[in-house]
């Protein structure tokens, strides 16, 4: 009874956390060990059968490959561009605030709006991209309808959207570095590139780790654009894991299988985060 006030204060947050985070997570894990119930065949325990089905599902392997390709295509590029932009707008340049703002603008747009915007770029014949390539005599191309180009198109758009967001973190980190460090290096004769390689970049490692973890999670989490642009098509060429889970759960109504897919996704993300922290940690903690 002594701690009743403490518990009362915790209750609102606890209800929200349990109701919307912990209970669904545990329920999902449990559901993945049961079959999907129907009116005629009630739910029953099937052990790891849902996970076994994963291995035999060619679409699962394809969306997994797609997702890895998507992550590899977007994460390093957006981080590199974010860093470049941050260094550029950290310098003394005219209209710096305007440049910073314009780099950040894509971040504040909802992904659905961005997807609609880029739809106009990629549309065959009347799209901006086709209009541009037509100047050089190229014929019309269905960028989003071609399995060979659709992932590239999605990756490009995601980099455009994400880089500005990551730039803000790099910019904040850059501004916390003492300008005297750069001057000290200058007096010693270090070139800008040498200073960047030996001082700036190592000092930005904590930010890089943070951005890397966020970018990785985003590359698995952010699928809004698929609803607008491709719906995972053509022939699952642009399908990503989370969108596939959505399809399985709410289009095919196989909730048990969707639960198993979700558990796999969560386990993968957790594993990735642990590896990233441990790998980068050695090079991060300079204090």
């Amino acid at each position: 009874m002594r701690n009743v006030h403490g518990w009362l204060l915790l209750t609102p947050a606890a209800i929200l956390l349990v109701g919307f985070t912990h209970y669904p997570a545990v329920a999902t894990l449990l559901d993945s060990f049961f079959s999907t119930g129907t009116v005629v065949r009630p739910t029953r325990f099937v052990g790891l059968a849902n996970y076994a089905a994963l291995g035999d599902d060619p679409i699962f392997w394809q969306v997994l490959r797609n997702n890895v390709a998507f992550a590899l295509g977007t994460i390093p590029t957006s981080i590199a561009i974010a860093l470049l932009m941050a260094i550029w707008v950290n310098d003394r340049l005219p209209a710096r605030a305007l440049v910073r703002m314009s780099y950040f603008t894509p971040t504040i747009l909802p992904m659905v709006a961005v997807a609609n915007l880029w739809l106009f770029f990629y549309t065959p014949q009347i799209g901006l991209l086709d209009k541009f390539t037509a100047l050089f005599g190229a014929s019309s191309h269905n960028w989003l309808g071609d399995p060979a180009t659709v992932m590239g198109c999605l990756a490009l758009m995601t980099v455009w959207k994400e880089a500005g967001f990551f730039m803000i973190f790099y910019l904040a980190a850059l501004q916390s570095l003492s300008p005297e460090l750069e001057e000290a290096a200058k007096v010693e004769g270090a070139s800008r590139w040498y200073y960047f390689r030996r001082v700036t970049f190592p000092l930005l490692m904590p930010t890089t780790l943070f951005v890397l973890v966020n970018a990785t999670i985003n590359s698995f989490k952010l699928v809004d654009h698929l609803f607008i642009l491709t719906k995972g098509g053509p022939d699952n060429a642009s399908n990503l894991l989370l969108y596939y889970i959505y399809q399985v759960a709410f289009s095919f109504f196989d909730t048990a299988y969707a639960s198993a897919l979700t558990v796999v996704l969560l386990a993968m993300l957790a594993g990735l985060a642990i590896v990233q922290f441990q790998l980068v940690e050695k090079r991060v903690h300079y204090r």
Partner: peptide, 26 residues
Amino acid sequence: SMVFQSYALFPHLTTEENIVFGLKVR
């Protein structure tokens, strides 16, 4: 050579690396 008010030491480098920074550059 210059000694700064805040010392301007590179926080991620050891004493040794800080001291020989300029020699490495050259």
